Simulated assay, not measured.
Amino acid sequence: MSNNKIIDLRSDTVTQPTKAMRAAMMDAPLGDDVFGDDPSINALQSALAERLGFEAGLFMASGTQSNLCGLMTHCQRGDEYIVGQFAHTYRWEGGGAAVLGSIQPQPLNHQLDGSLALADIEANIKPNDAHFAKTRLLTLENTIGGKVLPLAYLADASALAQKHGLARHLDGARLFNAAVAAGGDPYLAVRDITRHFDSVSVCFSKGLGAPVGSVLLGTKDFIQQARRWRKMTGGGMRQAGFLAAAAHHALDHHVARLADDHALAKRLAEGLQGLPGLTVEAPQTNIVFADLVGPKAPGLMDHLKSRGVLATGLYRLRFVTHLDVDAEGVDRAVRAVRDYLEA
């Protein structure tokens, strides 16, 4: 690797399509998806639904759109969804559920493992009273901040939601990272997660390496309703099969390799251990969070950029590994941080 190459650890969304993925895109048969005629989109939707245990799927432009259409299908104006304070559907997606769907969020604090306490969920389900919004939906995210929600927790949270008549939606932007982290066959592991939900959003433009696209999964009736919301939110993309072909290639070829990203995240975290003022959280998947205190904290990001390393520091230091970063790149990032903090 050239020392002039940028090591971009800001997010796994920065990945570039591989040569094989580009070839699959260029060979994709196309049709008008608004009429349901795009064979490449139809093939992706069917394949993902079958592998994850759902009746149907719907290709979307983004995870934000997929989550939004899912929430708007589950909930009506004046309904409420229970969600984590740092969940994407609440904090990082522009408030779309509230602004466009008139759906009230009820955000809850996360536990250390990223979960929402069952007691907190139950305490915030509103009574059937005209003073309150109608609590309709529990929304979880897996992974959440790079952490994998335990299967036992998903079973308990799902049972609690069902007990109170709530639907269950999963933001699975990094769902396959959670499945790969479980070990064994990732397609068996992913179904162990998805069976606890009525709808799931799966993103292909993060660690799976596609340039764009997500799929919303659910029953045939649910997806038919979501299709109307997709059209209303500008998601009728016509001949978008070449984008679906990229996602399908990722589904077939890029799932198992997520384990490489997890190993590189662990390598990065271990390399940063013991530096003055820096506390590093051991990663479970491909995201490394760290906290830096002291007089050098404000200048770290500029230093890293000067060394060709990009990271984010929006609320904590965050480094994300992906298919366009290798061990040499991770080691360069570690050296850049060490050189700054040990100087």
Rank of each mutant, 00 (worst) to 15 (best):
V83T: 03
P295I: 13
Q65C: 03
F59G: 00
G57P: 01
L251N: 00
N3F: 14
I6A: 06
Y153N: 00
N4D: 15
P39G: 05
G78P: 08
A182P: 00
L175Q: 02
A210H: 04
L68I: 05
Y340M: 07
A117G: 12
V190K: 06
L304T: 00
K231S: 15
L304P: 01
V34Q: 08
L112I: 09
T312L: 15
M232S: 13
I6E: 11
V212N: 08
D185S: 10
H248W: 10
L58C: 02
F54D: 03
G70C: 01
A290M: 03
A24G: 02
V148P: 01
F222K: 09
A155L: 08
D33N: 14
R51L: 14
A119L: 12
G213W: 02
G63N: 09
G63P: 03
R174Y: 08
D302H: 10
T233K: 11
Y153S: 00
P29W: 05
A161F: 02
L251Y: 00
G308R: 12
A123M: 09
L314V: 09
H196K: 06
G294H: 09
Y153C: 00
Q45N: 15
R10G: 07
N128D: 11
G36C: 09
L188N: 14
G172L: 04
F289S: 12
Y81R: 08
V180T: 09
A23M: 12
H249N: 11
H74V: 10
V83I: 13
S102T: 09
D12I: 11
V288Q: 02
F204G: 00
F289P: 04
F132V: 12
F204K: 06
N286D: 05
L278Y: 10
A244S: 12
N177W: 10
A43T: 07
M21I: 03
H262D: 11
